[in-house]
Amino acid sequence: PTPPYLKWAESLHSLLDDQDGIHLFRTFLKQEECADMLDFWFACSGFRKQEANDGNEKMLKLAKAIYKKYILDNNGIVSRQIKPATKSFIKDCVMKLHIDPAMFDQAQTEIQTMMEENTYPLFLKSDIYLEYT
């Protein structure tokens, strides 16, 4: 069978589908001071998954927490990678209490594209990954 670390090189999704892969990628991102991008990506996925079993109040609290931590501060690594229009859309949703499971989807896609084009290829060439393999 293919060892997991070779699968990680196939696509960002194969990497993010493996606990050890996530751990190593996060260590790399931490070095580059952009681990927040990965946390945000997972927070968006988690937010979308919560809809079925959780009440509106919890969703609102969570949406506010994600907004405050990653988007509100324009100097934050995540905020800097998200388009202004996407940010104002999320801000509007939070302010008007329009909480929707898909409200972070566009922002997540933008961060994902950034990782696919930038940090993920760098990770595959990094000492951290090469030493692991």
Binding site: Q19, A43, G46, F47, Q50, L62, K64, A65
Partner: peptide, 20 residues
């Protein structure tokens, strides 16, 4: 603030793949 962070952390963990 703590509970907000906990909520966020719980949300992030819920999206991670389970140990194989």
């Amino acid at each position: 603030i703590d509970s907000e962070d906990d909520l966020l952390q719980e949300c992030i963990s819920s999206a991670m793949p389970k140990k194989k």
